[in-house]
Design a protein around this nucleic acid. Structure first.
Length: 567
RNA sequence: CGGGUAGUGGCGCAGGUUGGUAGCGCGCCUCGUUCGGGACGAGGAGGUCGUGGGUUCAAAUCCCGCCUACCCGACCA
């Protein structure tokens, strides 16, 4: 490819509203342009990177027995209604009507559709099956942001496994896990596999592949000592045991005029760790109390997971007043029996605690949790705080921002049951198939690579995904000899199968060097009069910026060798 | 969805309070001089000032509505 025929409009300044590095650099480098919020045009350079990423994913999927298919993007409401996700997907789903008034949706994910086809599997002899597609997904995100990192239309590799039983699923899951590790390695992304919440996907287990980046939106808890890692929506930490006084025989009401916060109550002599924080939620229409220790934070995803909630929100102040008879700041669960009460495990065995009395300006002291509160269920609701100790090795935990680059789920039989995916086993018995689903966002991976591979001058692509492997810069485009040598090396490299871009523009060297560094091609060959006088060209890896001199005649073979050995 | 900011040529911005010829840098085109780290000179092209309405002799500027985008939060597979 010659730069003079490449459309790559580079910019000196990033758009004023871009924040994320990948967003700035991809726009500046002429890789992407925004059409509207959450929808991006991929220009030729980005399209080449996207194809490289897809090729890597396809190879690794095929290696573990994946069969590529293609599902429709426009899907009937009926399939989503059957699984209940027509409702639970909420506003994330783009919905429309066809000319007959039939409701359809743009594909958000495809468990339902794959399960529908999966129902044609009839015998255990056909199992296991692993199917995948690389296709466009549509999600009406509340807030698209950060360039390609969070968009409303993107390419996803989604794979689905079908197995006879849990053991089979474990194997499929492990194969995918290993394939993901290889995929991210090949893209030079340090993806940490962590325990994750399954959200509304359902199923037993899920693992997210997280890449550390400042622009990451997910908080991941990691232990640098023992390697523990979990999404904060799932993470656990060690909790120092507490020895409480036995306290009073029954809760004692006392006046706390004007005191509405944990902190205020703590000032008046009741440490936050001896308080019970009562939070009121409306979960699928049901008022529910969630209790955590006063100095702990509740994680809403944990609450959602514990309750299987589809719609979860904090109760409005008037709902709380109506139901408990007091306003936030004076709430408690003592004596409450007409709603579910979920209690964080950290409150187990605690006594002599303080909590709201459901009467404005009054609290109870001497509360023994198990005696005085009708605990519906003990669950983990507490959010890990920075500095908490690892429950495995007791070393301090870190909480780091990460980008979710992949997510794999053990779905179990949730979709298989609904859609009747079952086979006859060797005894002629009907068995529901066990499914898994596995996703990677392609453009997010692209942006994530940029987030982790850049310097002050621009992008530094890993060789495996770079739009071109080599860039030849002709320093003096008006010098015949300079052009001739550049062209010769270009032609030879093409012959050797190297992906090479020839900067044949009639521009000053400074401009060409700056653009070369901005777009981030891994290797540059600088062909200019200085070197030619000595019979050499300069070979410059983008990552180090350090030039080595290579005799002109040996250049193509030299480069081809470096690229071959770098693979 | 709540809070905030902003829409002026391809990109970055000024102008707006005090209404009166729409400006600057970069980029783009032509010519010349340059040519190993974003050159210089001369001459050019390119703008319904997001949009609809209102006030006014006159609106980029003042008033009202709407749209769009971004940032923070909520939310999110």
């Amino acid at each position: 490819m010659r730069w003079t025929s490449l459309f790559s409009p580079t910019l000196r300044d990033a758009p004023g509203d871009a924040e994320a590095e990948s967003h700035k650099l991809l726009v500046r480098g002429g890789y992407i342009r925004q059409l509207h919020s959450g929808h991006y045009i991929l220009l030729p350079l980005a399209h080449r990177v996207r194809k490289k990423i897809i090729a890597i994913i396809e190879e690794e999927m095929n290696n573990i027995g994946g069969q590529q298919v293609q599902m429709p993007t426009l899907q009937p409401a009926s399939s989503w209604q059957k699984s209940g996700r027509w409702e639970s997907m909420g506003e994330i789903m783009f919905r429309l009507e066809d000319r007959h008034g039939a409701e359809v949706a743009l594909g958000v994910t495809a468990e339902e559709i794959f399960a529908i086809v999966g129902s044609e599997i009839t015998s255990y002899k056909q199992l296991p099956q692993m199917w995948y597609q690389i296709h466009t997904k549509y999600r009406d995100e509340a807030r698209p942001k950060s360039g390609l990192l969070r968009v409303r239309e993107f390419t996803m590799k989604d794979a689905y496994s079908f197995d006879l039983d849990e053991e089979g699923l474990d194997i499929s899951f492990k194969l995918q896990h290993e394939a993901y590790t290889r995929i991210f390695n090949r893209m030079d992304l340090e993806a940490i596999p962590v325990e994750a919440s399954s959200g509304n996907m359902g199923g037993s287990d899920s693992v997210e592949f997280m890449v550390r980046a400042d622009s990451g939106e997910d908080e991941t808890v990691i232990c640098t000592s023992c390697g523990y890692g979990a999404n904060i929506e799932k993470a656990l930490s060690y909790l120092e045991p507490v020895n409480d006084e036995k306290g009073a025989d029954k809760p004692e009401k006392f006046a706390t005029p004007g005191i509405r916060t944990i902190a205020d109550l703590a000032e008046s002599g009741h440490p936050a760790s001896n308080q019970i924080k009562t939070m009121v939620y409306v979960i699928d229409g049901q008022i529910t109390l969630a209790l955590v220790r006063g100095d702990h934070q509740l994680n809403e995803q944990k609450l959602a997971d514990a309750t299987g909630a589809v719609l979860l929100r904090q109760a409005r102040s008037e709902e709380t007043l109506d139901f408990l008879g007091a306003e936030p700041g004076s709430l408690g669960a003592v004596g409450v029996s007409d709603c579910p009460i979920l209690v964080d495990s950290a409150l187990k065995g605690r006594s002599d605690m303080v909590t709201g009395a459901n009467e404005n300006d009054y609290h109870f002291s001497g509360v023994t949790v198990e005696r005085d509160i009708e605990v519906g269920e003990w669950v983990d609701l507490r959010e890990v705080q920075s500095g908490d100790l690892c429950s495995t090795c007791k070393e301090p935990l870190d909480i780091v921002p990460t980008i979710e680059s992949g997510h794999i789920f053990k779905l179990g039989t949730k979709y298989a049951e609904t859609f009747g995916v079952s086979v006859l086993d060797e005894n002629g018995k009907n068995r529901t198939v066990v499914m898994g689903s596995y996703g990677i966002g392609v453009e997010r991976a692209l942006a994530t690579i940029v987030e982790t591979h850049f310097d002050g001058k621009g992008i530094i692509w890993p060789l495996a995904v770079a739009p071109f492997q080599v860039l030849i810069t002709i320093v003096q485009p008006k010098n015949e000899e300079n052009v001739r040598i550049g062209e010769e090396i270009y032609a030879s490299l093409l012959n050797l199968g190297v992906e090479v871009l020839l900067d044949d523009r009639d521009a000053r060297p400074g401009v060409k060097f700056a653009d070369a560094e901005l777009i981030g091609i891994p290797y540059r060959v600088t062909v200019g009069p200085k070197g030619i006088a000595d019979g050499v060209v300069e070979f410059v890896p983008r990552s180090s910026g350090e030039a080595t001199l290579v005799p002109i005649g040996e250049t193509p073979a030299h480069i081809a060798e470096i690229i071959k050995s770098a693979k």
